[in-house]
């Protein structure tokens, strides 16, 4: 009898201690993967031309087929992409995208984007979008020379396009936070007027040749620049190439 009781007691104790030693649950992962799940668009929609997209109202659902020209760095299953077709350009902000797919977002790649047309500080963009790769042709846009359109109302018609501005004089180059590593704010002058440009560090990283080249520009230098015609309270092109004259 005593042996049975002793055995029973030992079993009880083992069970108790095992229960005590149970691991705590894993703390919550704070990573958010997709902030707009409920805002997803249905898969099958009519693909719009650029003219139809341009005519669509803000907050309207849009579907476009276009070609990747460049992208900002992938982060938390999202990617921001500069796209252009033969008839117009798009800025797709934080498309839902896996890390694996982000590596396929090379210039020229054709994708179909489904999302909502939005406007943030003047920049017309596709928000809350998803995409799929479309097999077929590729297209890499040539920079459109928009020098003569600077300061005119016609410039905005080329919003998001790959554009070039030639014979610009460097007035000021300033790092965000006054230290290299983040964006570079560039003021370029032409015909006694000043225009804001930006080296977007998520597009052209601080390790890139472009970032270093712009950082080394001095006031008075004359340059040709290329970039995407981004908008923030007016034209604010994101520079992708600079040639010092």
């Amino acid at each position: 009898m005593k042996k049975i009781i002793a055995l029973l007691l030992v079993v009880c104790m083992v069970v108790c201690f095992a229960a005590c030693g149970k691991k705590a649950e894993t703390p919550a992962d704070t990573k958010a993967t997709d902030a707009t799940e409920s805002l997803k668009q249905p898969d099958e929609k009519k693909v719009m031309t650029y003219a139809e997209y341009a005519a669509a109202a803000i907050d309207a659902e849009v579907v476009v087929e276009t070609y990747v020209q460049a992208n900002q760095s992938w982060w938390e299953d999202k990617i921001t992409v500069y796209c252009q077709s033969q008839d117009g350009a798009y800025f797709a902000y934080e498309l839902k995208c896996s890390e694996e797919d982000s590596k396929k977002m090379v210039p020229g790649t054709k994708i179909r984007i489904t999302g909502t047309k939005g406007e943030w500080e003047g920049e017309v963009e596709i928000m809350d979008g998803t995409f799929e790769f479309v097999e077929g042709d590729t297209f890499v846009a040539e920079a459109f020379d928009a020098t003569d359109l600077l300061g005119t109302d016609d410039l905005i018609k080329h919003q998001n396009e790959k554009v070039a501005f030639k014979g610009m004089t460097v007035e000021k180059v300033a790092y965000q936070n006054d230290q290299p590593g983040k964006d570079i704010y560039v003021t370029l002058g032409l015909a006694e007027k000043s225009y804001d440009f930006c080296v977007e560090s998520y597009l052209t990283s601080p390790e890139s040749d472009l970032y270093k080249a712009v950082g080394e520009l001095d006031a008075g230098d004359v340059v040709d620049v290329e970039g995407f015609l981004y908008w923030y309270q007016g034209a604010n092109p994101h520079i992708t190439n600079v040639t010092k004259k």
Binding site: M1, K2, I5, L8, L9, C12, M13, V15, C16, F17, A19, C20, G21, K22
Partner: peptide, 20 residues
């Protein structure tokens, strides 16, 4: 829960001692 189980176990132990 672990602590609750421990107390139940200890209760069984003491009850067993008493029975013994």
């Amino acid at each position: 829960n672990g602590a609750v189980l421990l107390f139940i176990g200890l209760g069984i132990c003491w009850f067993s001692i008493l029975v013994s």
